[in-house]
């Protein structure tokens, strides 16, 4: 009611004071909505929706760089299913996502609980903790590459020369399994800050009166964590985990920077394999098919973490969808 009156008065005001046609056009709500949405929607349509559709179409053709392909149906996918390298990449992507997510959330939750205590220099600590998340992944990945160097690794130096626990240097990136876990460790390192800071924000909204009530009833610290902290954190855990899983599963930079899929293709993620086939060797269609094959996994993981962890209303938020 108030709004319509306001608009009416507004129109009168415009007509009397500003007979300028352009100004009147900008006061037309429909036109204004159109103008406001065009840049964002336009950018997203041209550089996101269209490529997404194009990618799915490419996956069903035999396009290579410099040659327009024709429709070949499911051939690319049939080929992928018979390709041990693709299976290898699927296996490692799932392992990488699974182990790294568990590690990130266990350690990140712990760090969040620690940071939620009354501490001196709390805001400075919080700022320091976020650093690994701020610094370009590739650049910290290069630092990890150097830490994992077969000859001059600082970890090997510690274990062999300082502590004397081992006889020989660890060949972190030289054999498949140690390379796989070295990459997962680097990913966890990079992921902890985001998880910790997001969960810390959730922890801070839990009302202290709940803990007081529980303590009056004689709840142990573990019971307080299990029956208050955890249930109250579920909604935010679900959201943070959804994001984390999507971005870990589709990770590219860390693996590309440290191992480029080696040794003997054991650390290829689907994204690095897609890059190698699609861009480096020019088989656009095959690369697109590999990228498209990530979609079912992503949808499944999203649904799992979104519904599996129970999406409830954010306890203090107003109207989430």
């Amino acid at each position: 009611m108030a709004l319509t009156t306001a608009t009416a008065i507004d129109q009168v005001a415009v007509r009397t004071r500003r007979p300028n046609a352009l100004a009147r056009l900008f006061d037309n709500k429909l036109f204004l909505i159109f103008v406001c949405l065009t840049p964002a929607v336009g950018l997203l349509a041209v550089f996101l929706s269209y490529p997404l559709g194009l990618g799915i179409w490419l996956a069903f053709t035999d396009t290579t760089i410099g040659r327009r392909g024709v429709w070949i149906g499911l051939e690319n996918f049939e080929y992928l299913l018979s390709d041990p390298l693709w299976w290898n990449a699927v296996f490692y992507s799932v392992l990488y996502t699974g182990v790294a997510t568990i590690g990130k959330f266990a350690l990140g939750f712990w760090l969040a609980l620690l940071l939620n205590q009354h501490l001196p220099f709390k805001s400075m600590l919080r700022a320091i903790v976020l650093l690994p998340w701020i610094v370009p992944t590739v650049l910290s990945a290069i630092a990890f590459w150097w830490i994992y160097d077969p000859q001059f690794s600082i970890i090997s130096y510690l274990l062999v020369d300082v502590l004397g626990w081992r006889e020989t240097n660890i060949d972190f990136l030289g054999n498949p399994w140690s390379a796989r876990f070295s990459l997962i460790a680097a990913n966890i390192w990079r992921g902890i800050p985001f998880v910790a800071i997001s969960l810390l924000a959730g922890l801070q909204t839990i009302s202290p009166s709940l803990y007081e009530a529980a303590m009056l009833d004689g709840a142990t610290p573990w019971q307080r964590f299990r029956h208050i902290t955890l249930p109250m954190m579920m909604p935010i855990l679900a959201i943070v985990m959804t994001f984390s899983i999507i971005f870990t599963f589709s990770d590219f930079q860390l693996v590309y920077a440290i191992t480029r899929g080696g040794p003997v293709n054991s650390t290829h993620l689907l994204a690095t394999l897609a890059f190698q086939r699609g861009i480096a060797s020019g088989e656009l269609a095959e690369g697109a098919a590999i990228a498209v094959s990530m979609i079912p996994f992503l949808v499944f993981a999203t649904l799992f973490s979104y519904f599996g962890l129970g999406r409830r209303k954010w306890q203090q938020g107003s109207d989430n969808e």
Partner: peptide, 13 residues
């Protein structure tokens, strides 16, 4: 939508 799904078709665009 992760970037690693988009980069191949986006390259052609």
């Amino acid at each position: 939508v992760p970037q690693s799904i988009l980069f191949i078709p986006l390259a052609t665009v």
